[in-house]
Amino acid sequence: MSKIIVVTSGKGGVGKTTTSASFATGLALRGHRTVVIDFDVGLRNLDLIMGCERRVVYDFVNVIQGEAKLQQALIRDKHCPELYILPASQTRDKEALSKEGVGEVLETLREEFEYIVCDSPAGIERGAQMAMYYADEALVVTNPEVSSVRDSDRILGIMDAKSRRAEAGEDPITKHLLITRYIPERVAAGEMLSIDDVLELLAIPLIGVVPESESVLQASNAGIPVIHDKDSTSGQAYDDVVARFLGEERPLRFLEPEKKGFLKRLFGT
């Protein structure tokens, strides 16, 4: 049975595409046949983060409109043979994503893939609504920051009202909270919302916490999803997220402030 997972947040810049790339890669690295779809029509970026921008020929909208076959538009990932990328169109506008068209493409993908990861655009317009409409599960990416928490809350409400599952009266989308760009030192100093604060506000189960890390930018620079960087805290945190998603129990990591020496603590740096 295949599963459609939407990676969403409402707010932009919180780490949806970074998460989609690493989450899909993590599933594929564990042997699950996975496809990751960019729903950000007009502003595609998943191809860049996945490092396949020069191999894009056809895109999602071409497939919906019958201008290309699905097989022609799917790009095989260069690192994992079980992973495929379906890029967004850079030239069309978001209205090109019809509910029926998206539904047909997803149905076809279900036959061949175990996991279909939908990378949602920011906002609550058509692209974002189409990315979540057919979802079975959702990763709600949230930064410990007021506007991100508010937007995530809004997205949670929309998922419960406007998804296919909601309209059909089926079980609602299974939601997972993923906190990203977490800085333990600032939480300890009372300058940043804590995990418990965000959990209390959004009231959905936590699937992981990805600490703020330099390696995310470096991974984007290179076009290699950060989960491949096994030395980085964020790469390891994403690996934990994938493991938990697949049912493994893993304790949270990287939540304690870095231990500083006595002098450093007195005078800072």
């Binding site: 939480v187 100093a189 300058e191 940043m192 919302l193 804590s194 604060d197 209390e200 603590r265 007195l266």
Partner: peptide, 20 residues
Amino acid sequence: MNLIDYFRRNRTKKTAAVAK
């Protein structure tokens, strides 16, 4: 957190609590 911050921060309510 350095020494100066320590005294300055304790005077006012932590911003994370305000945010929550």
